[in-house]
Design a binder for these strands. Sequence first.
DNA 1: TATTGTTATACTCTATAACTATA
DNA 2: TATAGTTATAGAGTATAACAATA
Lengths: 153, 153
Amino acid sequence: MSAGPAEAVDLGPLPGFMFYALRRAQLAVAQDIQRHFAADDIRPVQFAVLVVLHRNPGLRATRVALALGVKRTNFVPLFDGLVARGLVERRPVPDDRRAAALYLTEEGAGMLGRLERLVAQHEARFAARLGLEGRYQLMGLLHRLTESAFDSG
Amino acid sequence: MSAGPAEAVDLGPLPGFMFYALRRAQLAVAQDIQRHFAADDIRPVQFAVLVVLHRNPGLRATRVALALGVKRTNFVPLFDGLVARGLVERRPVPDDRRAAALYLTEEGAGMLGRLERLVAQHEARFAARLGLEGRYQLMGLLHRLTESAFDSG
DNA sequence: TATTGTTATACTCTATAACTATA
DNA sequence: TATAGTTATAGAGTATAACAATA
């Protein structure tokens, strides 16, 4: 430790920019959820894959990747990691011998159940900071920001 | 193109989780600002360095890195890139021959001015989606989320 | 020809360990 | 001993090009 905090760094307009505040909030929330997932060695995107396969059993790799905003090419090693841990599996598709249908295993379903409880704890922790109405407002505002990215240039 | 959108993928509870909505919104905003910065070949974190040095001329590397949430070790190549482009410079510190004082160059100040106008355009675009009150609410809510990460537990 | 899945590859971001020269 | 800056390195995240098997 040094003697003190010295003078605070002046961040100027940065904290008032949405891109900066969003990045800081997203990092804070992501780090918290990663702490919750650490014991199970799962990352948020892997959790998302388990959720999607639970809701859409037999989905193809390309569609899972697209839905989650992951490139098909990067989805391969991500999914391989889950296969190696016995959480998911590829099954042949009778109609199309190029493709594979993706499924949760029983073990994967069990893991998903545990992770969902961890996420619920994590969400509750942050939601408590905002209140019911604050959380509702936040989701609406974030949704509007996300939509705006796909509008006219 | 295939025949149609097939069936929509069911994302289940994902869109209702704050971590997921925050990630999507942050990506949308970051991609927009990166488009604005593309012609100048500047990334958001480089812009942040220019802002901080403009507000705190002569600051040391360690303090800039800490203020922006960048590891000291990763700050070196980041700053080197800006030096190579003549936007910033290191000057010796008389009291401490280990250290360097960091400054914007004139060219860096000019670049900062241009970038600030681009950021203003970007912010206005997204702020228009939320309205004045919506933007104010968003900043408050994000601030509360960011604070919560540093609390007990 | 187009599509599914895949390999190879590269660049950025992030993180840890350890070095140097000073203090 | 501790600190400022740096080097080396490794792991994720993200991107493009191109291939084999199949449609």
